[in-house]
Design a protein around this nucleic acid. Structure first.
Length: 278
DNA sequence: TAGCCGTGGGG
DNA sequence: TCCCCAAGGCT
């Protein structure tokens, strides 16, 4: 449950499933993961995105072994203290893995509440205290029902009350929807999209793709050069290296991306080259 | 707290 | 094709 929830942060379930199966097969217990280098977690993360999550999940496994006897904690406060576990993930694991009554609030639940109760097309740009109060107020009193409630509202948001094109015709509660009753008013603000092309994030992603497949430390100059000129030196990493080169990013941007990866612990320098952390 | 952090499928 | 955005967390 903990592994899946962290993988599911900002990532569609269809992309998570195969990786999640691999992880549980390879590391069926926290101790198994904690016993391997963090870089193995990052490598096995594949292309799920936000690879810092892999690093934090590994760190969480270490903390679980060292501070919780190798068993994932069963309460919100101790879960929240784990690396990479925020309010949503702590509540979700306590509720769905341990049957506890927790106020689970994710993007789906926020959107359902915004429409059904508040009558707005979208929830606020950032999670508010009012939203948490509303969710807590709506939560059924007994443990078992509250768990079902959290799962049900989340599923309603994920499958029916979707962000882009809500399927109101299939909605079991459309007759009590405040947004629908109000004539489906448009959002009061335009969500600002995240820039991608030409950003450091794009370069970081391309660099990580190289490091994931590299079997030896990659010298900094290799990131700057045309892969075709590298010959045998680019053995095995030619494809992601070519993709990085295609970005045609400025040298200072590449420097910044590499420095950022080092600062985040996603890469380390070893024998004069970059590689995944040990 | 607003900005940052990956990736790829669907509208 | 382009763009939105998906079971967030951290600083």
């Amino acid at each position: 449950m903990l592994v899946s929830e962290i993988m599911l942060q900002q990532t569609p379930v269809v992309r998570v499933l195969p990786v999640w199966h691999e992880w549980l097969k390879r590391w069926p217990t926290p101790a198994g993961l904690a016993g391997e280098p963090a870089g193995e977690a990052v490598r096995s993360w594949g292309r799920l995105g936000y690879p810092r999550r892999a690093l934090r999940l590994h760190a969480a496994a270490v903390a679980i072994v060292e501070e919780h006897g190798g068993k994932v904690p069963d309460n919100y406060a101790e879960l929240l203290a784990l690396p990479g576990v925020g309010s949503y993930t702590a509540a979700a694991v306590a509720a769905f893995a341990y049957g506890r009554r927790e106020t689970v609030v994710d993007t789906n639940i926020r959107r359902v509440h915004a429409r059904l109760i508040s009558g707005t097309a979208l929830p606020a740009p950032a999670l508010t205290a009012a939203e948490m109060r509303l969710a807590a107020q709506l939560l059924p009193d007994d443990d078992a029902t509250s768990v079902r409630w959290n799962a049900a509202v989340m599923e309603l948001g994920a499958l029916v009350c979707t962000a882009r094109a809500p399927r109101c015709g299939d909605c079991p509660v459309r007759d009590s929807c405040a947004w629908r009753a109000a004539g489906e008013p448009p959002p009061s603000y335009i969500p600002k999209g995240q820039a991608w092309h030409g950003t450091d994030r794009q370069v970081r992603g391309a660099v990580m793709a190289v490091l994931r497949v590299a079997e030896a430390p990659v010298p900094a100059e290799m990131f700057q050069r045309e892969p075709a000129d590298l010959g045998f030196a680019a053995e095995g990493i030619g494809v992601p290296l070519a993709a990085l080169h295609r970005l045609n990013s400025a040298p200072e941007q590449l420097e910044r991306a590499l420095a950022g990866l080092l600062a985040d612990g996603l890469a380390v320098v070893h024998h004069g080259g970059y590689r995944l952390p040990a």
